[in-house]
């Protein structure tokens, strides 16, 4: 009896180190940051970690229009950027998959933007879009397209668009590479069968290629939705959320409050409200992934 009980314990014992590691690196920091969101924790005054202030950080958040604007802007930014990157990435992947000679070279070139750090991308676009000494305005002025420089990073529309373009430039290749892998993994038979049955190129893409790529698209979307916060450094360099909060995203707001202002308690409260955003994106994409896999299982 005793030996049978110890036998049942073996898998749990074997899993224990992994469990403890995960608890140490994920669970404990999560709990500590949750606790600190109910305190007046200021990083430069460590004792403030023990000053309990209840819901005050959360109450202030709910009353703070800047936070809600930043949250809304972040949702829009995520939605537009991810979908645009997906569509462009899919287009690039389809084009590259048709290239016969020099495909390896093309794949390497596609990956170039991924190799740039977001900070560097930020500086690059900042220089390109500077309204006085920047390349874009000077070219447009020289060509006579405009008579006065466009302050790309000042007006709300152009500033947010500039950030979006920089983000899309930096990350479309992630989609392109993942979807290209999906295209290579696709069986050729269904496509050939569709052609024999008289399907045109659009029908083949719509009813054969796209469903096969669906799981890859969903995985790429999930990875990117969690990874898109990498754009923080880029935004910080380009506008740091300004001017007058016109490009403020959750990441820039949290970094300013948490690190520059050292108000880590307040920043953690923001993080816990915004975590709902991450969870909903992830849940949505996982549902899509399960649905896509079921669909593939049905047609396979």
């Amino acid at each position: 009896m005793a030996s049978s009980r110890s036998g049942r314990a073996v898998p749990y014992l074997l899993l224990l180190p992994a469990g403890l590691t995960i608890a140490a690196v994920v669970l404990v920091p999560l709990l500590v940051s949750l606790y600190s969101s109910f305190t007046a924790y200021n990083m430069t005054r460590p004792a403030s970690l023990f000053r309990w202030i209840g819901w005050r950080n959360y109450e202030r958040l709910f009353e703070n229009p800047d936070f809600w604007w930043a949250l809304g802007r972040t949702v829009i930014f995520l939605t537009v950027a991810l979908n645009l990157e997906m569509v462009l990435g899919l287009g690039v992947a389809l084009l590259v998959s048709r290239v016969v000679r020099g495909q390896r070279l093309l794949r390497t070139i596609i990956m170039f933007p991924m190799m740039f750090s977001p900070v560097l991308v930020g500086f690059q676009f900042n220089f390109l879009l500077n309204d006085n000494v920047g390349l874009v305005d000077n070219v447009l002025l020289q060509l006579g397209v405009i008579s006065q420089p466009i302050p790309w990073l000042v007006n709300s529309g152009t500033a947010n668009l500039s950030i979006l373009i920089a983000e899309v430039w930096m990350s479309t290749s992630v989609f392109a590479i993942l979807l290209l892998a999906g295209l290579f993994a696709m069986p050729r038979d269904p496509i050939e069968a569709a052609r024999v049955d008289g399907c045109n190129a659009w029908q083949t893409f719509r009813y054969i290629t796209l469903p096969y790529l669906s799981p890859f698209i969903t995985i790429a979307m999930t990875i990117r939705s969690l990874d898109v916060g990498r754009a923080y450094d880029m935004v910080r360099i380009m506008t740091n959320g300004g001017p007058a909060g016109r490009t403020e995203l959750l990441w820039t707001l949290m970094a300013t409050v948490g690190f520059q202002n050292a108000q880590m308690g307040a920043a953690n409260a923001m993080a816990y409200v915004s975590i709902i955003l991450s969870i909903s994106f992830t849940v949505y994409f996982y549902r899509r992934l399960i649905a896509a896999r079921q669909f593939l299982g049905e047609i396979a």
């Binding site: 500077n130 309204d131 006085n132 420089p149 302050p151 790309w152 990073l153 000042v154 380009m238 506008t239 300004g242 001017p243």
Partner: peptide
């Protein structure tokens, strides 16, 4: 009298 981008 200043570049518009000076605000950034």
């Amino acid at each position: 009298a200043v570049p518009a981008g000076t605000i950034n």
